[in-house]
Design a binder for these strands. Sequence first.
DNA 1: TTAATTATTTAGATTTGTCTAAATAATATT
DNA 2: AATATTATTTAGACAAATCTAAATAATTAA
Lengths: 219, 219
Amino acid sequence: MNLSIAEENYIKSIYKLQEGDTVVTTNALAYELETKPASVTDMAKKLKEKLLIDYEKYKGFTLTTEGRKMALQIVRRHRLWECFLVDKLSFSWEEVHELAEELEHVRSEKLTSRLSEYLGNPLFDPHGDPIPDANGKLTKPRPQTSLDQSTARKVVVTAVTDQSTALLAFLNAKHIKLGTQLEVIEHYEYDNSIEIKIKQQPPITISEQVAKNIMVRPV
Amino acid sequence: MNLSIAEENYIKSIYKLQEGDTVVTTNALAYELETKPASVTDMAKKLKEKLLIDYEKYKGFTLTTEGRKMALQIVRRHRLWECFLVDKLSFSWEEVHELAEELEHVRSEKLTSRLSEYLGNPLFDPHGDPIPDANGKLTKPRPQTSLDQSTARKVVVTAVTDQSTALLAFLNAKHIKLGTQLEVIEHYEYDNSIEIKIKQQPPITISEQVAKNIMVRPV
DNA sequence: TTAATTATTTAGATTTGTCTAAATAATATT
DNA sequence: AATATTATTTAGACAAATCTAAATAATTAA
């Protein structure tokens, strides 16, 4: 099955939005892909035709087994390229998403497996997301909660769920990156903001909105 | 100036065919791009509009200064990716062309310069072709002649001009690659075939056609 | 349960890059 | 120089991916 770049992007986004067995709606997908609902309907017909999604008018979409397989291959390539850019070319983790978005569309099983091998067959990308193996098998994600839900005092940052430039820039300014150790000092119930301390730095306060997008694992 | 992948491929092919100041013809470009002359004419109008080529009806095309600049950037990316695939991912030099053909279209100055740096700012790609620097400056190609014109007895293979799978497979079978040392034993005037010897291997005979496509440098 | 709102789809148009078939220009041949 | 051949361009069509505006279905609220 040979997909166009556009089709790959749709499949990837449906995968991303599907989370479990949720049905993906037309509007949600249009928003995710920064396109119009009418365009999504058009593409949905094509993907159904190719047996990559289940789709009935007005009922939303879910990936078929074949579609999920495709999605996992794309995700695999995306995350491996992110590793490459960070580990080998010294990009910072907030810069790599866009580039990986392009590199992921080079479809070569041989390239992908060689790249993976070269990187030491990593299990997680720089954002902490698991990398599917060649068969599409995902390593169980590390036990993690969002910072606003965490009860532990000492935690490590394992992922950031919102990839917006705004958030990533904010975290960068505060010197918070993957692997950064945080100590939770105080949880203010009034607005759910959190006071944290990073080693050798003065404590800072983080809004609930930010805390929700920082994933952590107890140390 | 933001070019589509199709436009980039046209610019690159015109650059390739232009060699010096030759005017590129519609048919030659159509053949190179494996497309139809009518399509070439269509695209020529667009590229002229964008000031990347000089073009008058029935008179062929040449790149403008701006067009040549674009071409050199694409060529730079292509050849750097070839280096990466061979040096880092252990691909053999005859496999990398197609993959580089795709990777070259990721347009990021930062990625390109980081990649170049990571590879040690190489001056030549695995086929022996010079890599333009960030400003589009080309290193003078190494002094080389085709094997059929070479007068030296001992030579090194520096490049292969014909990238066809057939030739590359042939060379592979004979264990001839970039950097291979050859000793010219005999030049048969009858059919211009050449008898050569590779270290620790029995002598082999090579047709004029093959010899024309193997570039060598005296040792 | 009807009306209002929101979500989704359809119809028809647009852009990019391509094609075939026919027309025209340039070049080669006699 | 007239004719034949080859190269190039034009005209008109098509597929992919998108869009806007209008129509229709589903959902929510009164």
